[in-house]
Design a protein around this nucleic acid. Sequence first.
DNA 1: TTAGATGGATAACGATGTCATAGCATGGCT
DNA 2: AGCCATGCTATGACATCGTTATCCATCTAA
Lengths: 212, 212
Amino acid sequence: MTRPAASSPYATTQAAGRAALRRTLLDTASALLERHGPESLTMRRIAVDAGCSTSVLYTMFGGKAGIAEALWREGFDRLSGALAQAAGPDPLERLAAMGRAYRANALANRSYYAVMFQRPIPGFEPSPEAYEASLQPLRALADTVAECIRAGVFRAEDPTHIAGVLWAATHGAVSLELAGYEGAVDAEHRFDDLIAAAAAWFMTPDRHPSAP
Amino acid sequence: MTRPAASSPYATTQAAGRAALRRTLLDTASALLERHGPESLTMRRIAVDAGCSTSVLYTMFGGKAGIAEALWREGFDRLSGALAQAAGPDPLERLAAMGRAYRANALANRSYYAVMFQRPIPGFEPSPEAYEASLQPLRALADTVAECIRAGVFRAEDPTHIAGVLWAATHGAVSLELAGYEGAVDAEHRFDDLIAAAAAWFMTPDRHPSAP
DNA sequence: TTAGATGGATAACGATGTCATAGCATGGCT
DNA sequence: AGCCATGCTATGACATCGTTATCCATCTAA
């Protein structure tokens, strides 16, 4: 194999071209996913919309599972970005903003949320690396939790554990809301209550809010 | 149409036979679902395993979505049954037992849980009646919550709302556990903590547990 | 006993994921 | 300059899926 040095200008532009192609294909797949739902995410349809043949999809992504994984990562990237933009004057406010950002992101990217937490694409199981990358939002949450502990708002427990509980609360409320299992309750009210409950559970006694 | 009176012995036995057939087909579909996952739930495969043709499945269930809906209802029936068996000396203990039963049922029926809350079967959307039936577990939860309110353990809020929050908490923790988003946390610990947090949130001040 | 109907088996149709083959361009060598 | 090797892509085929049209057996009703 006469392969040039990895950092040669030639290899660089070639890699850039491939990355651009990949980006374009993912964009059309993403548009398909968001506009017509996971059902319409078909190899042939992606190829037609992108203006190429299905072979390209297989050489670039290895198959439909590869595309699903790429979209999966993109969904978690969007989630991480949404969480990173959450701001507030103190750690607890920031944590609350992250919760609201989680819900807003899920509602604004329903199809992505489905790819991430439901499994609408048959035969797709995230790879270990993708799974590892998906824990980034949890780490962001844990960092803010740690700040809350340092600020004396939360008890000194394992921040990752607390973040996991908060994530489970957020995810549960959002998941039920997206699935439509409303019962008679207001989804937003349920969300706010559950998040407040989970946060209050870890607060130090003097910070603990009195029940409304 | 020469259809006999609805209550004739002929019609009765015929209906019984049809019900038995339907039960058998659902059992094979259920076995397939639990043993080989939702991917293997194929019209042809069900027909082969049951020893019949695919036509029967279409005349009896109308299509794959019909089978999915039947399994969906069965999943919620199992959940309702598990919740109904939860017992305890007082309402709060009963509520805690229901939470544990929910998790145990989900872990013991992962494939059913997937059918209920993920959407692994393309083109299946629960009908309004099936959706209505799926709210039974929520009602059972709300009943026990109402008992807790009467017992003075919970504040006097809308029992359905409280039940919804508890359900979201339970579902969130179980959902993350089944999806494998563990991070570094122990799933059972996370579950217990979140349920305790959600329950404590609604307790009257004098019943409120001090943080451990 | 026979006409009619009911329901299940067979096979076909369109669509899907996947892959083998072949065409084609590009780049390097003589 | 001409020719070959190499990698990429388009085409078409294959297996499988959900679904349905057609045909045939069986069974009831007269």
